[in-house]
Structures are given as structure tokens and as C-alpha cells.
Amino acid sequence: MYASHDYQRVYVWQQPVRWFHWINALCITVLGVTGYLIAHPPALLSGAEASAGYWFGTVRFAHFLAGYVFVANFLFRIYWAFAGNKYANWRNFLPLTRAQFRQVWDVLRVDILQLSNQPVPALGHNAVAYFTYAGTGLLTLFQIGSGFALYAPMSEAWLPQLFVWVTPLFGSEQNLRLFHYAVMWAFAVFTVIHVYLVVYHDYVEGHGVLSSIIGGWKFMEKRHAQADPATGISGFRGRAAPAPAPGAKTPATPAR
């Protein structure tokens, strides 16, 4: 009899992380939709005078407002990378250890190439996911920088003025606008893959990934939940965490 499916409930995503996620999701949605509308305003037929309408102005206002929330939320997440639990820690997002690279390979093998049926145990995210989020973090930084640089001519506020130096790097505002817009598509691609993979992991592994971003709990086989590969990378309990034994990749060892 295997005790491998003796599950343990682990509190992974603290409340601030969950708030961050949903506010971020909302911001990206609003920014994406309004951004698309700003680039391609629909042809609304209206006999009204211009003075009677302001919908395009409102769309732009929503975009700018969501932009501010997006920045504040992002800054908060950076703070939480230092203040939060080990799954939210900033170290996860940077390639610092061999173990992370090993896990990247494992994830590619198991989840993409599907050469193995053994899920890669990872509380928090797996290394591929963490690195992907680091990438979206960079995209976020770019959108913030380019967005506020484009906004600066319309605003006296200090925050947009911090980014005026971005425009010359791109030669012209028009060019910067293009890249700002193109990165919106990158977020769209990210969203498709992100949502799919969450559903995939939930469906295949049954660790409760999907609900974890609401309640914060994940469910993990006990032996994994206590083993280093699952939490070691996420946690970096010791910076030089002893490399897991080769057997850890496919933990065939009997449960503790």
C-alpha cells in the first residue's frame, strides 16, 4: 500500500498575494481592453454633437486610472517579495541555484514533452512558472515605463514625469506607442497560456492549484510537502540547500 496520496493541506498564497493576483488580473484586463479601444476605436454612429459625448475620453481615463493602480499593485508585490512567506520570496524569481535549473528541465520533461507521468512536486510555483512571472514582471515594468512616458505630456504629476527619458530611447513617441501596444499582445498570449496551464495542473495533478488563488491552500502528498524539492526551491531555507538526491526527481522512495 502506498501512502503517497496522503494529502497535506499547505497554506501557500497569503492573502496579500491573492489580492495582488486579482487586482493585477483586473488591471491587465481593463488596460488591455481600453488599450485596444484606444488603438482601434469602434465606429459608433451617432448624430449627436461632440459636446454631448465623452466616451473616448472616459475610456482613456479608465486606462490611465488602471495604470496607476497597476503600478501601485506592482510596487506592493515587490515589497511583499521581501515581506511575504517563502513562496512569495524574491529569490524564487531569480535563477540562483542549480536546483532551479534542474526543476526547469523536469517541468519541461513532464509537462511539456510529457515523457513522464510523475508530476513535479512544487508548492508555490515550479521554477518555470516563477521565471515566467519574472518575465511578465519585466513586461510590466516596460508597460509602466512606456505608458507613463506616453502619459507625461498630458500630465503635470510627478510620477509620469519620472519616465520622460524613455521616449528618446525609442526615437519617437509614435514608435514608443507601437511597442507599448505590442506588449499588450504579449500579455494576451501570457493570459491564454497562464489560464490553460493552471487548468491543466489542476486537472492532472489534483493539487488544488485553481482554488489556491482564492483560498490560499494547496494540497500536496505528505512526503512531497515535507521533502526539499517541493519546498526547498520555493523556500530557500538555507541558501545552499543540499542538492536533493538523484532519486528526488522521481521519488520512488517509500514515504516517510
Binding site: A182, M184, I193
Partner: peptide
């Protein structure tokens, strides 16, 4: 940017 974007999203969806 739109054509490329739509193609990329389509590819992602097809891949998924």
C-alpha cells in the same frame, strides 16, 4: 502589431 498579436494569441491557443 495586430496581425502579429492575433497570430501569437492564436498560436498560443492552438498550442494549448
Amino acid at each position: 502589431a495586430d496581425r502579429l498579436g492575433v497570430a501569437a494569441v492564436g498560436a498560443a491557443a492552438a498550442g494549448a
